[in-house]
Design a protein around this nucleic acid. Structure first.
Lengths: 231, 231
DNA sequence: TGATACATCTCGCTC
DNA sequence: GAGCGAGGTGTATCA
């Protein structure tokens, strides 16, 4: 990993064209040749970058560039596309390299997956008498998050989201269309379950006869802990 | 901007929990207090991070941590949520600070906006006799990218995408449903135009009577340049 | 401020 | 490799 602080201008050409005027920035050159251009603010996203696989070459500045004060020019070319990043360095304030080794990687725990696990374990949250059929019920157009049956044995498809958006309702609608063509399953009802459901999504869901359920993550986790303590 | 290279372990707790085992990494502390943890590979996304607004505090290691070899502990707390990042430094290999100043920001050129401009200027790409009504035609559920009329004067709503996905077809379908309720406009036909249209999106569009048009960005740009030279 | 659509999205999984 | 869905998505725009 090479870290350079420099006054530089940057040009990207590829899926779009982008230009960064002359300013002081941090340049990160990773072991795989990828390059990140960071400013002193914003988010985790660099101002500009080149993803691997790519190669970084330091080329001599042209006479014009030399006249403008360019002391070095980096050309970062993507290996599989025409994407190219050009960094013109006007002044190098810091330049150091470090051997980081291979990273053991991130251990993640709990996202939609955990919500799904919790809801599957406490499926009666959706209504008394509900029973779980299975999670990740595969269909031709993708997996339904949870399939279950209501107290009367009717099939219910559940789409689960952390934030209930209009897209989620569309997704569930597509599943329901498909599932209701299957005579073994039909009629299949739909439940849109999320920690938070946007008003527009709620309106669309109700318009399509889909029930909305707001999930309380903490309460579900509490039930889970209570259950764990009991047994 | 502070740049630290250190052997460290990292724990994130917030919307999910994540843990990074002890390894050598680059730590970036930006002027707004945000922190990025980068390894020597991957993409532009850090292994872990804290977005602004947040505050970084260096706290004394606990006796347990001291025993494990922790020399410093950073606690980065998000200002508006319970998100917290904890970095335990075991060995600092580099530590430097730099004044970068405010970045003038990125100048972008050419995305969906440019496609829309080009297509609007050369609306006959969609068919002989087509005429432009207007771009960004506002409706209650959002703007239709392009509204135009075909050779017979029938209204045509155009949804434009760089990559034509199933979502885009759904979006256009919603617009068409709404527009066709307006007696001044109905019947309104739909055109789904994109540089690349996914097979599933194409199937769905055809199933709904929506015409698909693949756009050649370079050709459109070429027509534009030719036009510019003529006048 | 909230909602919506876009992104050089990235990432991980399945087929 | 293509398709699909999730993301601690982030970011800009517009009501």
């Amino acid at each position: 990993m090479r870290v350079v602080i420099a006054r530089c201008s940057v040009d990207y050409e590829g899926r779009l064209q982008a230009h960064l005027p002359l300013a002081t920035r941090l340049l990160m050159v990773k072991a795989d040749g990828s390059v990140l251009v960071h400013s002193d603010g914003g988010s985790y996203k660099p101002l500009n970058w080149m993803s691997p696989p790519c190669a970084m070459a330091e080329v001599a500045p042209t006479p014009d560039e030399l006249e403008e004060g360019v002391v070095a020019c980096w050309v970062v070319q993507h290996a599989k596309s025409e994407d190219r990043l050009r960094v013109r360095l006007h002044e190098v304030l810091h330049d150091s390299s470090h051997d980081l080794g291979v990273d053991p990687g991130l251990v993640k725990d709990g996202v939609e997956a955990q919500l799904q696990t919790l809801l599957a374990e406490h499926i009666t949250t959706l209504g008394d008498g509900y029973t779980l059929m299975r999670r990740e019920y595969m269909t031709a157009i993708g997996p339904v998050d949870i399939m279950c049956r209501d107290a009367d044995g009717r099939t219910v498809a559940v789409e689960l989201k952390r934030r209930g958006d209009i897209d989620g309702v569309e997704q569930l609608t597509r599943y329901l269309e498909l599932l209701n063509r299957d005579p073994h399953l039909a009629p299949v009802a739909g439940v849109f379950a999320a920690q938070q459901i946007k008003p527009q999504a709620r309106v669309l869901a109700q318009d399509r006869g889909i029930r909305c359920v707001t999930l309380d993550y903490e309460a579900l986790k509490g039930m889970d802990d209570a259950g764990a303590r009991l047994f």
